[in-house]
Design a protein around this nucleic acid. Structure first.
Lengths: 408, 408
DNA sequence: AGCTTTTAGTTCATTGCCTGAACTATATGA
DNA sequence: TCATATAGTTCAGGCAATGAACTAAAAGCT
């Protein structure tokens, strides 16, 4: 069995572990404890000590560092009952990160404070389909700058940002490898132009992965292993294991849209054959339902589909049934490969749940009997802004896990 | 990629990071550096210091602890050229771990020293198919005891053991959940009876996972992300990411034998439909090739299959072609889900490579174009004793990563 | 009001571990 | 024989956590 990584330094990274690493680790421990207290309750140093197992003396010292760095702040007194009241601690409400999203139909930006509260959010409709990346990024930069200055006027300081895009990304090299629906291939992003001079920099995410992380935050505790399936024009996915995003060696894991569900099926935009996306992607469903996908906008097509389903249109019903059945095949295989049997449906899969659920469950029972119980197939709790919020949330989380990056 | 577990955890699993953790971490760092020196070269303290980034003073102190614990030993002098020769260090050749395997046709046991050298190995043929687990475990215990005492006579001390079984296991509870070909369901193993009083205890592994780990050891450096596919009666798999076994939340990841490759296919022993195993498992291939699988032994059937293939028998050719094609479908999906595009074929897939490769590659190019290059489909370098050696190797590795478990 | 009890937070001596510099040990080569 | 080079040890210094003692600030009792 693989042992849990040591708290200090892993032998894989061949990094010499020194005493300072203990400080860093415990800084994260304390900050994590403060962050995990229910919102509205402001833990005292003593409560943090109890929660972490550290001594009061150590916590006092660590808290001082976090206060100096501006990551947390004190908030009045906090009577516990009998004795001296503790001083409440909270994540500094004056610090925030920015979530950003580029999608086919819009760009959007949000400012989220360290506790995860959305302070500002702006969506700008924009047809980015097959648009060159320059103007899209320029528009996003303008939007981001405006929202950032609005936050600045409220005394909010933006520490970093996360950008979600609908495509394969290389997070390390800040590069979009392919985004078929945007028509982008190998685009290197100048993220500093997008959000200048933020101490934590900007992280790049695949849309479905970011949405999966957002889902994690908004879910009852204990549900820390699931697959988020994003139903957009393409079908994407994000795998969460042990409350961590599982990205695979190169950051592209979870591409459930390209699992083979029909070996005799049609060609996919990825070049493969019989991928889930060719059956369960938005355009595929619209086409199979006999609705023009390319004529009007996609939201119009979706309304038309819903009307058709409510009217019991056979072609529409069949299209959704087939999508559900094939989604089940893909999920059955996923359960075996990554040992996950809990799924969260997003995008149009969430919208179509009413018609999708029955064929999906039937398929799961046929192809992976005993793996998925009905209550393990759920619908997104976050909805449309998932990618946006997930990107921001992930940046917050990386700060909480490595607070020494501010005020080294 | 599997992220290092943060020290921050939920309120329950909080790990207090103290100074002692640094020692533990650096103990592992030093031991890992010694273990990774090429066999036959015995690094000095100074070389270890250079390799790890620790100071000579720290390394001296850490090495002393490892010597005290008996994990490493000194081996004469080691002239470097000009100055004072260093004292060579090596993993203590007098300490070893035991690998054990239960399979359908045999039980086997090996003693492997900490450097990974196989000192003793015994295979005992035994028909364990549908045998109750009591006698099988008793026979294994007798075999293990005999080999252990043989090692003892050579002054070899056994520190721990690893057992590989062909089925789903719960490593934490030391339990075999299902082993279809043994007919075992929910068997709790009394591992202490198997190998009494070993300081490191015994770890339990799925056969394919253990074999994947063995493959990792015997492969050129850099190839640290791959899928090992085990072709036995059942089809199993082990996923290695970043030189670590990827087990999934419950330890059952990599079950590629039950990926759906033919939605209209036949029933599988797992209860599912159209699983890879129903097409590419040994019995499935034998049957499709028109050979009696249940009459004679499986090795006889395999010889017959090879003769038929060499004779160009159409039914045999078609059976293997179909197996290769379906294996390709499963691997195409795996590439998408876990972002791995490198595969090592084991078991009968290795034996049949000559006939399997062409249809497999064709299928990969059809279903996941551009993902698998030809040189990323390779054949096992370890062969049959893979599971045995992998189980032992994993125990060694867990010791190297946490040496403080001996001589706390 | 005054005293006791209770809880919060700080101060300080101690311990463990790593570091860097100084020092000892042992080889080669001129 | 002596200079040089490399290996390994010793020792003072610094950082971080600990535990005990101490100060701080509230509630409750008399």
């Amino acid at each position: 069995m693989v042992m849990p990584a040591p708290a200090v330094a892993g032998p894989g990274g061949a990094a010499p572990g020194s005493v300072g690493d203990v400080r860093r680790s415990n800084l994260a421990l304390v900050l994590g404890a403060i962050a995990e207290f229910p919102p509205g309750s402001f833990p005292s140093r003593a409560q943090v000590a109890a929660a972490t197992g550290l001594t009061k003396a150590s916590v006092s010292s660590l808290v001082l560092d976090l206060l100096d760095a501006g990551i947390i702040s004190e908030i009045g007194l906090n009577p516990q009952g009998r004795g001296r009241p503790g001083v409440g601690l909270e994540l500094n409400p004056g610090r925030a990160v920015m979530g950003m999203e580029i999608n086919v139909d819009y760009i959007s930006v949000a400012v989220v404070d360290l506790a995860g509260v959305v302070l500002l959010r702006e969506v700008q409709e924009r047809d980015n389909r097959n648009s060159p990346y320059g103007p899209v990024l320029a528009a996003l930069a303008v939007l981001a700058a405006r929202v950032r200055s609005m936050a600045g006027e409220q005394g909010i300081q933006v520490l970093g940002g996360g950008l979600a895009v609908p495509g394969l990304v290389d997070p390390a090299r800040v590069r979009v490898l392919t985004a078929p629906n945007l028509g982008w291939i190998n685009v290197d992003l100048d993220l500093d132009a997008l959000l200048p001079e933020v101490p934590l920099g900007i992280a790049l995410f695949n849309e479905a992965n970011a949405a999966a992380l957002a889902e994690l935050r908004h879910r009852p505790h204990g549900a820390s292993n699931f697959l988020f399936v994003s139903g957009e024009v393409g079908v994407g996915g994000g795998i969460v294991i042990g409350s961590e995003l599982f990205t695979g060696p190169e950051g592209h894991a979870g591409e459930v849209g390209h699992i083979v569900v029909d070996p005799d099926g049609g060609l996919c935009s990825c070049g493969g054959t019989g991928c889930l996306e060719t059956v369960a992607g938005q355009d595929a469903i619209f086409t199979a339902a006999g609705l023009a996908a390319d004529g009007g906008s996609r939201s119009q097509a979706m309304s038309a589909l819903l009307r058709a389903l409510e009217a019991g249109e056979p072609k529409a019903m069949a299209a959704v049934e087939r999508a559900g059945g094939c989604l089940g095949i893909a999920l059955a295989s996923t359960a075996r490969v990554v040992n996950i049997h809990s799924v969260v449906l997003g995008g149009h899969f969430a919208v179509l749940e009413h018609w999708l659920r029955a064929p999906l469950m039937a398929s799961l029972h046929k192809y992976a009997p005993g793996k998925y119980a009905s209550e393990q197939v759920t619908v997104s709790a976050v909805g449309e802004p998932g990618a946006l919020l997930g990107a921001a949330g992930s940046v917050i989380r990386s700060l909480v896990e490595a607070p020494h990056r501010l005020h080294a």
